[in-house]
Write a protein that binds this DNA or RNA. Structure first.
Lengths: 228, 228
DNA sequence: GACAACAAAAATGTCGACAATCATGTTAGA
DNA sequence: TCTAACATGATTGTCGACATTTTTGTTGTC
């Protein structure tokens, strides 16, 4: 899912996750305006909360806030998309290195438990849970690597990846298939750092290759509603 | 300086910059508690503003906020320090690539103008301006590269670098000397991408090598005030 | 004298109301 | 009829007051 720790993530984080999920499920399209009052009513919270959540989402690159104008779902261009995946490979490689060098006792059991949840959600066709858990797998890796810095960096990159995927995917959603996650766990369990790095690299390349990053999707901004 | 654009950065950003400068000048040490009301009085703004600024600083990794406990200047460990410089090299390399591939007309003049300011501040011994401009040089590069994503990523990394430098520097502050910046501009002007990448790499290695990243500085947290 | 429970103080968290700003619709003038 | 200035409505931005939580200081008992 979206954030790693469920220990007191604050009520605003829950709103972030729900908006993130709406974006991932394409219920919220890039360019859509997010009115504060409207969100406050939907989630039944105060406007201050919504404002908090929007600020978080902005720092994660999911929404763009124009002063005195409002918040919009971001529309990353292809160059940004390439950068995001470029750095995501770098960050996740570092995560795998860290995790391999000093792996805690409960790391493998937790990874396998998570994988089981992924497979279960995948089997019953629960796309919401599948999306949540796919991202959550990578977040869990960062968490187990024991670096809050890598974790926060990765959360940012995964948020952006999700949005980019909805904008530029060619065919059906790839969903970060559980099988590739399983392969990675397998290499980690075998204490095979090189193999783990390769599995991660291949996995991320696979995700990126499902996208069509040849040209920018036209930016429409405010015209969106009228033209669709 | 701290943020690139001076066009409507919001009043909260100014507070961020002043706190960042205080940290860079070692007037605020890692672990120091930042009381909201106190800051509100110092800067003569409302507490909501301070809260806004603290949230930004947290997302930049400069302060750590403990729910219901308060905000503290962060104390990054050596592993985080290494990660920060590792990724900073990656990001800045990407910036140089982007800048080289499609360089705008006013890029070189602006870089040289900035360099002149750096030399001037350095000559008159204005450490505050020197720190500001040293970070600002890198931010300007990212801005000229035309990627808001790289810019925001770099701001985060530079903030963290500054804090790390104050914690782990061996001797005197290196200050991102203007000469190495000049060498980089020189390579960019010559359209020498490989040379520019090497100049940047060397520059960042130089900064990192001034640090002693062999062991964590002991974490004292709340005991700090009593022991100092 | 030491520990535990309780009470007071201080700091953070939250919310609603008001002010400033921008977008839209209207009207007056050429 | 078209343009431009104005007025209106809607939306975001800001602030101060109140509620909650933590910390500190005190007191009473063992």
């Amino acid at each position: 899912m979206y954030q790693g720790k469920e220990a007191v993530p604050g009520p605003a984080a829950e709103i972030c996750e729900r908006i993130w999920l709406s974006i991932a499920e394409r219920r919220l399209r890039p360019g859509t305006r997010l009115k504060e009052e409207q969100l406050a009513e939907v989630f039944d919270v105060s406007r201050a909360r919504v404002r908090q959540a929007l600020a978080m989402l902005e720092s994660d690159g999911l929404v763009t806030i124009l002063p005195n104008r409002g918040a919009f779902v971001s529309e990353p261009g292809v160059d940004e998309a390439r950068d995001v995946f470029h750095f995501r490979r770098q960050v996740e490689a570092r995560v795998v290195e860290r995790l391999s060098s000093n792996i805690s006792e409960d790391a493998l059991p937790r990874l396998e438990a998570h994988l089981a949840l992924e497979r279960e959600a995948d089997a019953r066709g629960d796309t919401t849970a599948t999306i949540r858990l796919s991202g959550g797998f990578h977040m869990l890796l960062a968490e187990l690597a024991g670096s809050t810095f890598l974790t926060s960096m990765l959360r940012d990159l995964i948020s952006r990846s999700t949005l980019i995927t909805t904008m530029y995917r060619r065919h059906s959603h790839h969903n970060c298939g559980p099988d590739e996650h399983a392969a990675l766990i397998d290499r980690i369990r075998a204490r095979d750092l090189a193999g783990a790095l390769e599995a991660m690299e291949q996995h991320l390349r696979h995700v990126e290759n499902e996208l069509d990053l040849t040209e920018d999707v036209p930016v429409l901004r405010d015209l969106r509603d009228a033209l669709v």
